[in-house]
Design a protein around this nucleic acid. Sequence first.
DNA 1: CGGAATGTTGACCACTGTCAAGAGCGGTGG
DNA 2: CCACCGCTCTTGACAGTGGTCAACATTCCG
Lengths: 246, 246
Amino acid sequence: MDRLVNIYEDRLIAKLERLGPLSEDERHLLQDLPRTETSFPTRHDLFREGEPPPHCMVLLEGLVCRCKGIGDGRRQIVAFNIPGDILGLASILLGRMDHSIGALTPVHVAIIPNAAMLALTERCPNLTRLLWRETLIEAAVFREWVLNLGRRSAYERTAHLLCEISSRLHAIGLSRGHSYPLPITQAELADALGLTPVHVNRTLQHLRANGLIEWRHRMLVVRNWPALKEAAGFDPAYLYELAAAA
Amino acid sequence: MDRLVNIYEDRLIAKLERLGPLSEDERHLLQDLPRTETSFPTRHDLFREGEPPPHCMVLLEGLVCRCKGIGDGRRQIVAFNIPGDILGLASILLGRMDHSIGALTPVHVAIIPNAAMLALTERCPNLTRLLWRETLIEAAVFREWVLNLGRRSAYERTAHLLCEISSRLHAIGLSRGHSYPLPITQAELADALGLTPVHVNRTLQHLRANGLIEWRHRMLVVRNWPALKEAAGFDPAYLYELAAAA
DNA sequence: CGGAATGTTGACCACTGTCAAGAGCGGTGG
DNA sequence: CCACCGCTCTTGACAGTGGTCAACATTCCG
């Protein structure tokens, strides 16, 4: 068993086990899923809006964003995905993508044919339930984003997103304390926050000036977690199993 | 078989059949689900944020909103639900509500114990799949709301929401042409659009002045559907089976 | 080392929010 | 049937958050 298989197990199976218990049998079926591991460079689109993809993917390494555009160049990042997340899962039952999924960093993924995934859910009702649960949590996160965009100021909103990412990375062991790699640009942050890059820049400076964060060398350091949570009005309840207890 | 039972069938079973085929057997099991039909007045909370409800509901008549608050009085409506929609479905697998569900009009619902619903999904994998699919479409709608709040102006955003509601009501036969009952206040619209009531008022006047809509006697009349779609940048693809072909 | 992408700053602007007052409408009770 | 009260809608003046544009600094990467 080589290293990549271990990554695969660590990521997908650990993720599902956070959602609920897996039987030995189910674990083995997951390990035996036909899959192809591949890497893609930064900015590569793993899925494109409107397409009917023949497969889904498990993100093993790297960071991706799910985004929607309106013709004139405006675009909105609607979610970030981190290692362990399943990409294009919706396409299995919906047939076509309503958004794109793009690599924010070089990524490593396992590609799984939709047919194999479907067959697995037919064989294991418990797995179907875990994946449904995953979709439900994802929907809860979207709801929080709607609240974030609709009713929080740029300052609160930015703080909130940084809190969310911290909690989610913490849950999969990719943060140290409340610091974590955030290898994206301010323009990408802006597309997630519904702001302009210029205003994101000012907002980050504001957060920095208040001693809440630092962000250098693509590493985000939370200097004052309680204050950041407070500023954001952050309550991780909406993340359910995605977050470690904070 | 009395009238209420017919409403129940019309609403829940018609909804599920739009999502995918049901067997005779499944239809009967759905009809035999233990349920209590009840009515609630306007402003009654059917579910409250944070609570672990013992049941879900099928909305038979009326309009409800799902909403999240931040302590200081600010609140955001994250979704509207119309007859046929299942309320509190997430609580079955997630255990607790991350948002409230409130009646915008007098409502009539069928209350179904979570245990019964869970048992049914265990017995019918196909039903589980349909409900999962429903959750996936719901998530797609949330994504569109994130885009709407993040990247569209008040004018576009308002037009977009009016388009969405029109399409969804059309799919369940509750609109005539592109006109439909919209028995909510401008303040509630504001909470859905992330705007203030005052600005919603100005925006609606703008839409009216441009000949796109009228809104009197709680009835929204779309005067120029192509222009409204155009102004909104509305593409119903994200609604999947929830929308009739426009 | 050099060029492109990203980050930073300032001046100015506009979309949307805030506050406040008045008008319209609908429901309720006398 | 009318009068009243409260909720919703409307309007105006003003304020502020966040957007736009443009230039420059910095970092990254080939």
